[in-house]
Amino acid sequence: MIGNERHGLVGIIGGDLLRHGKLPVILLVAVVISAILVVTTAHETRRLTAQREQLVLERDALDIEWRNLILEENALGDHSRVERIATEKMLMQHVDPSQENIVVQP
């Protein structure tokens, strides 16, 4: 005669796995951990790639700004060179527009 004992399915499966299936459980845990690490690594790689792309764009913008500053410096340098030549060789002087009396030398 069969006894009236009732065992839960989860309990039976868990007992069998602990008694006879330790290797498959260990392998299942290893596969799950490996899958989580793969997903985490892929996500981090995508994040770092996007960050690198942003830094490259910032570098390009700074490089363009640097070139513009060099051009501006050269343009201002030419102006100061012309001013220096005018004051040294041609003896020109700055005129203050606020002065009312302008003296003209013959």
Rank of each mutant, 00 (worst) to 15 (best):
H79F: 09
L37V: 13
T49G: 06
G14C: 05
I70M: 08
I2C: 00
A61S: 11
A35F: 12
V32E: 03
I36D: 04
E72C: 05
I12H: 01
H7Y: 09
I64F: 12
A30G: 04
L17T: 03
L27M: 10
Q99N: 10
Q99Y: 03
Q105K: 12
I12E: 09
G11L: 04
R59C: 03
D78G: 05
S34T: 12
I64D: 12
V103A: 08
V32K: 05
R81G: 12
R81K: 15
G15Q: 11
E73K: 13
R67Q: 15
R67M: 11
I26M: 03
P106D: 08
N74K: 15
L18C: 03
V95T: 04
H7Q: 09
E5P: 00
L23E: 14
H79A: 14
H20Q: 09
P24I: 06
H43V: 08
R52Y: 07
M90L: 15
V104G: 01
G11S: 12
R84N: 11
V39N: 03
K89Y: 06
A86C: 03
V103D: 08
L91H: 15
E73Y: 05
V103L: 13
R47I: 04
H43G: 06
V104C: 04
V25D: 01
T40Q: 13
R81Q: 15
L62Y: 07
I85N: 06
H20G: 02
T40D: 10
N68T: 06
W66V: 03
E44W: 14
G15K: 11
A61V: 03
G14I: 02
V29C: 03
E83A: 15
S80M: 15
M90Y: 15
E58V: 12
P24E: 02
A30F: 09
E88R: 14
E53N: 10
D78E: 14
Q99D: 07
R84L: 13
I12C: 04
I2V: 04
I13D: 01
G3C: 07
E73F: 04
E83H: 09
A61Y: 05
